[in-house]
């Protein structure tokens, strides 16, 4: 009797869950340590400390097929709130996601229109990101230059979810005016 009942219950419960689920869950705070490459063709590296891995944080709010969020860069792959003797570069520490979407397979696409660490100039650069939610829960993909007038560059990123947006500190959503430390540096240390 139990052998017959459990599959039925599981099916009913599963169908119930499926009815409530709207798609892959990409919502959350994601961390990735971008490879530290000082090569000219690379993206996202610390210009001042090229051998130090750069921390990349992706914060995603998913609402059905729509996605909003931002990408923030940290001075090291440890995501330390470090202080630097150098003056802060607010312009390049954070960028909003634009035209971000997630499809039913867990593929997230977005555009970034901001300067990126590692470049010698601070002019905004158009980037296109394509990440896919893997079975092991990682968000894996690339961020590449999508600006015909600029030198090309691509960086492969693998994100691990470290928290949810519901429990995250609201200050992390403040891209324009990040929290300032006592010595004047920004929280991300960049």
């Amino acid at each position: 009797m139990i052998h017959r009942t459990w599959p039925t219950l599981t099916l009913v419960f599963g169908l119930g869950l499926a009815a409530c689920t709207t798609g892959p869950d990409v919502d959350g705070v994601w961390h990735a340590a971008a490879p530290a490459k000082g090569a000219n063709n690379s993206l996202l590296f610390s210009a001042t400390e090229p051998q130090t891995p750069l921390g990349v944080e992706l914060i995603i709010g998913a609402y059905g097929p729509d996605v909003a969020g931002l990408m923030r860069y940290y001075r090291s792959g440890q995501f330390d709130l470090a202080r630097s003797p150098l003056p802060p570069r607010k312009e390049c520490e954070c960028a909003f996601l634009h035209e971000a979407k997630v499809d039913a397979t867990g593929r997230v696409t977005f555009l970034l229109d901001a300067c990126v660490p590692g470049r010698s100039w601070d002019a905004p650069l158009e980037l296109r990101g394509e990440l896919t939610l893997m079975d092991d829960g990682r968000l894996v993909g690339t961020v590449a230059v999508d600006d015909p007038g600029q030198p090309s560059g691509t960086v492969a990123l693998s994100f691990v979810r470290v928290g949810t947006t519901a429990t995250a500190d609201p200050v992390i959503l403040d891209c324009q005016h990040p929290a300032t430390l006592a010595d004047g540096n920004t929280a991300s240390g960049l």
Binding site: G61, D66, G69
Partner: peptide
């Protein structure tokens, strides 16, 4: 709203 930026930010 249907704008995800309004919902998120």
């Amino acid at each position: 709203t249907t704008d995800p930026d309004c919902k998120f930010f």
